[in-house]
Design a binder for these strands. Structure first.
Lengths: 165, 165
DNA sequence: TCTGAAAGGATTTCACT
DNA sequence: AGTGAAATCCTTTCAGA
């Protein structure tokens, strides 16, 4: 099916249906062997290898990450919504946030709030410290923090090699 | 279908320093070869292979996902905060959400809101349709949607294999 | 639980279509 | 832009410590 290339504004990348199929497969299992991807799109390994290389170099594939059970790893996850002071640009806070090890993701939002941050901390005390750290920059006019109790992401439960004998 | 089927043996998992080092490496590059991981932790490949297998089976590693540039792929990402009606349990809505292809992640929150959903849609019309779909379930008392303009996640920019020319 | 070696796969390159 | 074969490299299993 032909879902269309809407982007075009900044990226000169053209994706065909095979590229999109590969992306959908890798989204669900980033460790899927090239040989298996090739079988899924009815090609041999060589062109699939080259296509993935092209997708990586062009920035369409930004990376491959393992998803870890945060509680098994003894961690706490949370989000903080941040509203910025009127004279502060999002880029200013982003620079601060990227330097903090506890920051896992930063989302710039169209509307209110201005920024959404995902934290990876050891406990609530740690969370309080990092959120206070953001407040103390003087760049924010308000924060609201959401503690994650449970989370689910598409693909994560199917991603492991299930050996069907 | 049951909602909580994964990693029941969470409490019986013990991680040593080598395990934690492997997790940190895989978080940043899920496609890193076992041989390279082995070098990084000063072991041979065999035990690293077995350790990762154990981490996968015990549910500590939940999966491996490729991170795609949504704009290059012609997509729009957004979050919706959901407040549930007083008589609705989070599990009820979760069941509905998991069936929707547009739902990428579901976070159950301690406090207000009750649930945070991450969407992957083709455009704002599509977003409006899926959010209205949630409203029409009658399970929610309020929603607030945040459209992502830009996002950054730790590790994603270093995750690609650095090749020597 | 590790090492080292060997077997079996996977990936990439290359000549050709 | 894809195929098939060959070379290289990776992963897993197994014997031994």
């Amino acid at each position: 099916m032909n879902t269309h290339d809407v982007s075009a504004e900044r990226s000169s990348v053209k994706l065909d249906d095979v590229d999109r199929a590969l992306l959908d497969l890798l989204r669900v299992n980033a460790r899927m062997p090239i040989s298996e991807l090739a079988r899924a799109v009815n090609l041999s390994s060589a062109p699939v290898s080259r296509r993935i290389d092209r997708l990586e170099r062009s920035g369409v594939i930004r990376g491959y990450v393992a998803v870890i059970d945060e509680r098994a790893a003894g961690e706490l996850h949370a989000f903080t919504e941040i509203r910025l002071n009127g004279d502060v640009e999002t880029g200013e806070l982003e620079g601060v946030l990227r330097e903090m090890d506890e920051v896992q993701s930063i989302f710039t939002i169209a509307g209110d709030p201005d920024v959404l941050v995902r934290w990876r901390v050891s406990d609530v005390d740690h969370l309080q410290r990092v959120v206070n750290g953001i407040r103390r920059t003087g760049k924010t006019s308000g924060t609201k923090t959401l503690i994650v109790m449970y989370d689910w992401t598409r693909g994560e439960q199917l991603a492991l090699p299930t050996h069907v004998d």
